[in-house]
């Protein structure tokens, strides 16, 4: 299915939940809000004509400084692929501005695609967006004593962190593996 077709179909089926739809260079996306994220992504996966069985990546964007053209500060971006149909689609989750670190929350899509686990941990680590219902929401790239979320636009570029503590055993320290 062409991306334009997918976009139209999503807007027809889930029109109430789509805040915005857009296109750039032939790539289409829809913007949804956190309460409807599960329904939209679940439909994209379960509808046999869409069948998005692979979550390629989850990314974060901080739009601080773009208040003129955005009503929200953060976006969490889901890149989807259907292997069977060989088509792709992009869903963005708008996260409202004015929220403090840790208060920004999006439902975890870990139950839909297991691969979301580490990807969401990365977005949490770098942007401070909490994923509710995530089984192991801890930092993944930065060390545990790191303060702040470095890819936020308001993170001071030359801020220095204290050094990491030695880790006794990477595996047993992690509840996922212990």
């Amino acid at each position: 299915m062409e991306q334009a077709e997918i976009s139209t179909r999503v807007q027809q089926q889930l029109g109430d939940h789509v805040v915005q739809a857009g296109e750039f260079q032939g790539q289409h996306w829809v913007v949804v809000e956190p309460p409807h994220l599960h329904e939209v992504l679940g439909t994209l996966k379960d509808d046999p004509d869409l069948d998005f069985n692979v979550l390629i990546d989850v990314g974060g964007v901080d739009y601080q400084g773009h208040e003129d053209d955005k009503d929200w500060r953060f976006e969490v971006v889901y890149q989807l692929l259907s292997v069977a149909h060989n088509h792709r689609f992009r869903v963005k989750c708008a996260v409202s501005s004015g929220m403090e670190a840790g208060e920004v929350a999006v439902p975890s899509v870990w139950q839909i695609w297991r691969t979301a686990n580490w990807m969401e941990r990365e977005v949490y680590d770098q942007y401070g967006i909490a994923f509710t219902g995530h089984p192991n929401l801890r930092r993944i790239l930065n060390h545990d004593d790191f303060e702040g979320h470095p890819l936020r636009k308001d993170y001071p570029i030359n801020k220095r962190q204290k050094l990491a503590r030695p880790v006794d055993n990477l595996l047993t320290d992690d509840p996922e593996w212990a």
């Binding site: 930065n142 060390h143 790191f146 990491a164 503590r165």
Partner: peptide, 10 residues
């Protein structure tokens, strides 16, 4: 990297 620092120290 800061995460590597304790390893180098050790």
């Amino acid at each position: 990297t800061q995460k590597m620092a304790p390893v180098l120290q050790q």
